[in-house]
Write a protein that binds this DNA or RNA. Structure first.
Lengths: 228, 228
DNA sequence: CGCGCCCCGATACGGTGTACGCACCGCCGA
DNA sequence: TCGGCGGTGCGTACACCGTATCGGGGCGCG
């Protein structure tokens, strides 16, 4: 038999592996969201049978974890300069870039796997010189992450709104302000003001504003710790 | 026919209404998570036919929005004292209490409805005296919310871990640190230190630590704005 | 009393995650 | 050389999901 490569079937492509499965699933999720990822679809994408995937992952949750870990492993940790503020900012930007490319990673939280650990190590190390206690370091990193999450989540919800209704936020507010009684009559003046004053949404600006708040808070924490 | 109330059937209970549907769905979600909420289950809970729900909500997403709005409407906005820092803290605590009672509200973001608007008005008003621009106010509130979200999400993931494996975080780390090559060999010293130094998880303390960072950041923003 | 309208919900369809068990292949001991 | 065997791929089946469709039955009105 001149069959050069293994035994596997006609219709298939790659011989099925963690990497191949993760790549196919990520490809599907990247355009179509997690909604577009199903065991059948992933299997179809690689030309294999649905149940074959279960030889590699125990269930869909593990597939999701595999996807996340694969993404994290591919993303290099940002370089460190020694200036915690600059490094934290770079970390946040890098994380934001990742989530923007793979918004489905916000759908759920998966535990830290082998691929993400280098990034975590890098993040922790970045704050070591500040002299903060480990609890504080972890807390700070959590805050930075949640800032990124919130920004992306908001950005995506605006994008979804636009995709599904064709309206931008302003138009949507105008269309729906009538639904809520008491909005016209000045019962909610601040909300009315917010709607009126909100111009074009600038996601970058909003993100950097939020990040600045966090970084200032961290600076205060470091100052307090060092001084105390 | 001595049937006193309308025409509807034997097995049913309440005559079906927005409130009844929302309450039933919330009841299911509160213990069992969003996973336990399906059109059939909600209908069964109120003894009606599945498709009857569609007379009140167009699809499951709208049911979810209805659930969220109902919860928000029932939760009174915290009183304001005039001290933005105290008020922001109270807002965060109140929000945290809500999400703790209804963790499924973190599963997705639903647009602001009539029930939540009073709380939003209150939150915006709370920051008006600081003299911040509307964009900054919205950004600050977003940061506070995302702090709460992150804290709850983390708390829930720890609870899930415990429920599904019976381990606490420490035991889980111990059990899985072998899976990641290079963790034993000192390749990731900070991660190793984090695992070693992490004691019992104190969610309250972690939450207040994060919140303090944000509040300090907001103070810096206000000072900068006022001074500039 | 009879008719038409309208609302309720049974049924059905296409999709999902996944348990089960069979077919097949390459390896290894006899 | 042959026989068995472990492991992998996957066809089939089941329970459940969201929801489109449509038939039947109760009510209001003429």
């Amino acid at each position: 038999m001149p069959d050069a490569e293994s035994h596997d079937g006609r219709p298939g492509r790659t011989p099925l592996s963690f990497a191949a499965i993760a790549d196919a699933a990520i490809r599907l999720a990247d355009h179509g969201g997690m909604h577009a990822v199903s065991m059948r679809k992933v299997a179809a994408e690689l030309g294999s049978g649905t149940m074959s995937l279960y030889r590699y992952v125990a269930n869909k949750e593990q597939l999701y974890a595999l996807m996340c870990d694969t993404v994290l492993a591919a993303e290099p940790a940002p370089a460190r300069s020694g200036d915690w503020r600059a490094d934290l900012r770079a970390l946040a930007e890098s994380e934001r870039a990742v989530y923007r490319r793979h918004p489905w990673m916000l759908d759920s939280i998966s535990p830290l796997g082998p691929g993400g650990i280098a990034r975590v190590e890098n993040s922790l190390a970045l704050l070591a010189p500040t002299g903060l206690a480990m609890d504080d370091i972890v807390g700070v990193l959590g805050m930075v992450s949640s800032t990124v999450h919130a920004a992306i989540r908001h950005e995506m919800s605006v994008a979804d709104l636009h995709r599904s209704t064709g309206m931008d936020v302003h138009e949507w507010h105008a269309a729906h302000s009538g639904d809520i009684k008491g909005l016209q009559g000045g019962e909610f003046p601040m909300v009315a003001r917010m709607i009126a004053e909100t111009g074009r949404v600038d996601h970058d600006a909003a993100f950097h504003r939020s990040l600045a708040i966090v970084l200032d808070g961290v600076a205060a924490l470091i100052a307090r710790t060092g001084a105390g």
